[in-house]
Amino acid sequence: MKLRNVSKEELYRCSYGCAGCASVLAVRLTLKVLGRNSVFVVPANCISTVSCYYPQAPFFVPMTVMAFAATGAALCGISAGFKRRGREDIHVVGFSGDGGTADIGIQSLSGAIDSGYKFIYICYDNEAYMNTGIQRSGLTPYGATTSTTPSPCFENRPKKDMMRIVAAHDIPYAATACTSYPLDYMQKVEKASKVNGPTYIHVLAPCPTGWGFPPERTIEIGRMAVESGMWQLMEFEGGEFRITHTPRRRRPVAEYFEAQARFRHLRLEEIEAIQREIDASR
């Protein structure tokens, strides 16, 4: 896949998203790959919030807003309906946030993967419940401040490993991606769309409002997350994990932390402890 060959059609336009929002970018990139022949299921998250102000409608494809805990169930239902009508060429896409995937929607996702219907479940991970006011979620990393884990007693639980959870379901295809590596992400979406079964893509989407950095650095912060080792780009296929992108040189994790307001309170020894943990898991 080359940038010149990517579809020029914009199927997601004029949302109410914040300037520099990476989850809006993730929707745009997804629709560039899947095209008009797709149906979206969006539970309560940033995307449904910024796309559903009457009479505005940025989605140029059919889209339904679903209850928080029912994304997986809705995906199964729609997919079963298309299968009955013989329209299995239509891509059924769930676009859920990190809270809607790892906390509230996890049983529904688990049931949906278990059912074996064909769908693509995309979790865009901005590491907290951003649209309701930056509350901690299961995917908030260790050390981050949120409005429910403020500075002196910051988030003290590690990030939930969703990839291992979905891999435990023996899913046909799962992948992690980052919006700062758009071609890598789009290749993974394309690959997922060709699998006849449930697929899961976990895409890291830096949030300028919640993470505390200027909007023009969105892409740079995502790249720093991958280069520092806080986020890995990998695929799970045929029962095996495979790293799809290895950074040429590792950045110190302190650089990534210094760029964001949510890690500003961390002391030197805490950063060193996180660095040691990352180095050990390499």
Partner: peptide, 11 residues
Amino acid sequence: CLFCWIFCPEG
């Protein structure tokens, strides 16, 4: 190079 085009969240 189209980097700006692919990275623009708004299209």
